[in-house]
Design a protein around this nucleic acid. Sequence first.
DNA 1: GCCCGTGCTAAGCGCCCGCTCACCCTTGCC
DNA 2: GGCAAGGGTGAGCGGGCGCTTAGCACGGGC
Lengths: 212, 212
Amino acid sequence: MSTAEETAGGDTQPWGEVTPDAARRLLLAAVEAFAERGYHATTTRDIAGRAGMSPAALYIHYKTKEELLHRISRIGHEKALDILRTASRGEGTATERLADAVSSFVRWHARGRTTARVVQYELDSLGPDARAEIVGLRRQVDAEVRGIIEDGVRSGEFDVPDVPGTTLAVLSLCIDVARWFNVDGPRTPEEVGALYADLVLRMVGAKNARSA
Amino acid sequence: MSTAEETAGGDTQPWGEVTPDAARRLLLAAVEAFAERGYHATTTRDIAGRAGMSPAALYIHYKTKEELLHRISRIGHEKALDILRTASRGEGTATERLADAVSSFVRWHARGRTTARVVQYELDSLGPDARAEIVGLRRQVDAEVRGIIEDGVRSGEFDVPDVPGTTLAVLSLCIDVARWFNVDGPRTPEEVGALYADLVLRMVGAKNARSA
DNA sequence: GCCCGTGCTAAGCGCCCGCTCACCCTTGCC
DNA sequence: GGCAAGGGTGAGCGGGCGCTTAGCACGGGC
């Protein structure tokens, strides 16, 4: 199995860069709560409670509830970008790199479904400035995938009439995993990653997509 | 252009079945508001204001704010199911019916992006009973698409190693259109419908998917 | 031993939420 | 004209929201 996300950044400790410890616990509690109920339906009392603290403790580490969402969103997008960049800049044919990018991106969405949900679906709850920053990161995400597809078209591996449209569809397919994936469901993240890599290779008309 | 949704139900007046007039105006205002800001971030004062009424007027026609969401969700899902059924039960090969189903389903999500957003993304804001009812409708949606794919596999038109997984991916792709589609963007609903129909035919290994 | 900064809590402020209630216009029937 | 019924309003209730503030426990420096 190829391994873009294992070599990309510290998957060892997902929120390891957040210090001090109390701030990280609050952030983790916020991720859980936002993923379960959505940003607007989550109260600061709920976040603090999950972290085992009083409501006021939140405001020692974060200026507002929105700052929590912003931090989660930025760290999550940077991680996602990191995964795609590692796959995109790796060695191998465009076909191999696209399969690696899709399967690792999908695995990330499935395994970290709570984080991915917040990252992908709570964007509109951010204020204009924070939103603009995140939109910039998303453009970079798009560019990485489009780059691989363009490589494949140039090398003759892929047959893609509409590169921007297909890029959009590929990303859309991966992102929506965060909506429907169920940890208790019948599929493991690895299985979904493999299935989706195959489906995407078919979408771009790659020669060696799996068949029955 | 094939036309599953033009022959399915009354597309003439999207919410024509809702009476009296004041109740329909409130429902329309709620769809707009829920789509823009999400269910929890929308206030009953906002909904009533958009409909040109006082906050109290809402409670003459609906018991609670949640009843509004429930009504919107059920009507929307019934419409979506109607579109897929019409395509699925039409004449023609599985390839033609799948292309028709996908392109009309996608057009519905793109054209009625506000409605589709509420229908597809605010499901979790419903209470357990209402949610269960809607989940039932979604299972029927899944069954329609799976049926077409199974037909194609049986007839030898398609080459699909994992039918349930591919069904899930096809629906996921279509549904996510409601998240990213922008009315002011570069693509018309018709263009996205055609592009997606082609991509889906490639995913199922249909013989006559378009190429460059 | 005393001080002070740090990390936290208990209490609560001001605001706005979903929703209700007492009352008021029309409209149609006699 | 009298009157009931239904669609509508203005005011406001109880409560929970995001966030603030005064003060407490405690460890390290001298």
